[in-house]
Design a protein around this nucleic acid. Sequence first.
RNA 1: GUGGGUGUAGCUCAGCUGGCAGAGCGCCGCGUUGUGGUCGCGGAUGUCGCGGGUUCAAGUCCCGUCACUCACCCCA
Length: 447
Amino acid sequence: MAKVTKLSGFPEWLPDGRIAEQVVLDTARRVFELHGFASIETRSVEPLEQMLRKGEIDKEVYLLRRLQAAEGEADPGLGLHFDLTVPFARYVLENAGHLEFPFRRYQIQKVWRGERPQEGRFREFTQADIDVVDRDTLAFHHDAEMAVVMATLLAELPIPRAVVQVNNRKLAEGFFIGVGATDTAAVLRNVDKLDKIGATKVADLLVTDAGLTPEAAQSCLQMASIRTADTSFVEQVRALGVRNELLEEGLDELARVVSAANAVVPGAVVADLKIARGLDYYTGTVYETQLVGHENVGSIASGGRYDSLASDGRQTYPGVGISLGVTRLVSVLLGRDLVTVSRSVPSAVLVAVTDEEQRAASEAVATALRGRGIPCEVAPKADKFGKQIRHADRRGIPYVWFPDAGGDSIKDIRSGDQAPADASAWNPPPADLHPTVSSAISQEEAP
RNA sequence: GUGGGUGUAGCUCAGCUGGCAGAGCGCCGCGUUGUGGUCGCGGAUGUCGCGGGUUCAAGUCCCGUCACUCACCCCA
């Protein structure tokens, strides 16, 4: 199940890898729809100024240019979308008059980023995104709902255990202000490196880069190290003795998310106070998701709350959402051999061809099977039966059908069992009807 | 964008101070003339990334270039 990469950062899977990806996509759609999210698709391009608002010129956006553009022709200023949130915000503004609020939507599409590729980092990849958006104010319980839906989705996939880590930017900012920080963004950025470079180096950076006193740095480090599966983080933070109004608000919000989520998906959502996520538009809750045992590939699902997802000047639209990195997840599953795909083709049955004069008889069998929903294909050549069986074996097709004027038979090539069969009545066991994707390893436990 | 590493068969790679381009796996055939897998025997496969240079001679040394890859930045 190897990855084939012609152009770095633009992954293409082999057929069995694609089957694994489709399981993720199908499961995402099913779980999202089960929770009442409506599907939309937005165009692939957005005006540049939309994507680069707040002067973020450092974003690696791919530009759209016409090959035959005339000399001096006006630059359309279009780029391939960088994420699904900005296009969604634009869509909400454009269609506000036609939408019912609160509006719940899911969106599964490719996005493009011109970054340097690495394991789990691509220039073209698929995101599966859910958001809830409302006018003026958005009920807070949706912050817990996003984590619950994503945890539910991930729990249904044949993958290592996933943990949604939640933090709250009010909590972090309030705490940093409470210890005297002036550049809270710098504190946040450095605290986020805790896992990667360790406590002592972060402490140094908090003093040199973020301008904290050594005591304040220690305090921030202690706060950022807190991680609990329940609401006990509140007491742990309070024990550090920092007092701030924004901090209290954040503590309250995060506690509500964690307790509400744990009531639905116990253990799948934890409070982790070092999660920074989103230096741009997130204003409250932030999410990040790790695959247990594969933390180094980064978050596979992230998102957060934004008080003004969109604004038309007279009305603001707050939202909260989370996005699954489908390509990142699938690339880890395939690249690290974490899943087993039962076969590389949809066919459950290969109908053998006795000789080319008898091909019509084989086609008739296939038509009968297909009429009853059994995916099958007819052997491409009337080779010796040994070769036809091998053709099926190579693709993982479990059954070979032998037409015979004296009575058809079907062989399970895994067991070698062969039995008489009638194309108008035979059915494979349900487990063999479609390719299956299963976990290749036993589930790992959390640290 | 910055800094390392690697490019040899379909895949994973070996190839010494320059001297006939290799192994394992896979693939094809036969044993087994219409029932695969195991086993045995046999066989095919190369722009040594690309371009230039040094040399009697370059996969090997030098220069350039492209691609891939890892880390940083940032993020799904």
